[in-house]
């Protein structure tokens, strides 16, 4: 791409990425509501989903403000189509079984907690403030998903096999978190956010430690599916999510409470 981005254009894209991650994963996790294996997990997953939707309101709210076209968080969440979404491919992947959902959550939470930790020092106070609020929730999400990954990975033969299968399936979606582009370069230049690649060592150490506790083997491959955070190549799953999530606005445009 030869087009140069202004700082605000890049910040807008960066905020969409953060907000779309929590929006899409929040929606995915909410699909468990009423279907979890036990009541306690059902409530915990619903709480996690709600936390993420709450974070979405902040990120997309700020995105709308930065864009300066009068859009609210709701406008951005419900009136964009697939190609405008900027979430990681990982978060749009299907829930699968409970173990697969918790593995996806753990792989995301680990990155999310490290990212928010860096954003606490953002030169943009609005970004730092949202990161501070979200990081407390995410610290808990990570504790919970990591415990569950260890419990199931180091559990029965069946649960171990399912968790290893989930890890093998989802690992190719991890690499995208650490791939930078011109948006990230602009954020680094403005001291707003870190270079994504700079999170990798901390991520590998954290994830490696938990997966070792879980007696799981990290796949020996750096292959990474890409195209979610740039919006150039979402998987087919995102379209299906949006038909559900945006159904009301599509059927009744402009409907309000």
């Amino acid at each position: 791409m030869t087009k140069t981005l202004s700082k605000d254009e890049a910040l807008f894209q960066f905020l969409l990425r953060l907000g779309d991650n929590t929006l899409v994963l929040g929606h995915r996790v909410s699909e468990w509501c009423g279907h979890s294996p036990v009541l306690e997990e059902d409530i915990a997953l619903a709480n996690t989903a709600l936390d993420m939707i709450g974070q979405t309101q902040f990120w997309l709210g700020l995105a709308g403000e930065v864009e300066g076209k009068g859009k609210t968080a709701d406008n951005l969440a419900f009136l964009r189509d697939v190609w405008d979404f900027r979430n990681l491919l990982l978060v749009e992947q299907p829930n699968g079984d409970f173990g697969q959902t918790m593995m996806r959550q753990f792989l995301f939470d680990a990155w999310h907690s490290i990212m928010l930790g860096r954003l606490l020092k953002s030169s943009d106070q609005r970004v730092a403030d949202i990161a501070e609020k979200a990081s407390k929730e995410v610290a808990y999400h990570l504790e919970r998903s990591a415990d569950t990954v260890v419990g199931l990975g180091d559990g029965t033969e069946e649960s171990h096999a399912k968790m290893q299968a989930a890890l093998d399936l989802l690992w190719p979606y991890v690499g995208e978190m650490f791939v930078g582009d011109e948006v990230d370069a602009e954020m680094v230049k403005a001291d707003i956010a870190p270079d994504p690649a700079s999170l990798r060592d901390e991520y590998d150490a954290l994830v490696g430690r938990i997966l070792a506790d879980a007696t799981l083997t990290v796949p020996d491959s750096k292959f990474a599916h890409k195209g979610g955070k740039t919006g150039t190549r979402h998987s087919e799953h995102l379209g299906h999510i949006l038909t559900q999530m945006q159904w009301l606005q599509r059927a009744y445009p402009g409907a309000t409470w």
């Binding site: 306690e40 409530i43 915990a44 709480n47 504790e143 415990d147």
Partner: peptide, 11 residues
């Protein structure tokens, strides 16, 4: 016990 505390936190 640890998960019981986490579940209690959520419930």
């Amino acid at each position: 016990a640890e998960m019981a505390i986490k579940n209690a936190r959520d419930v």
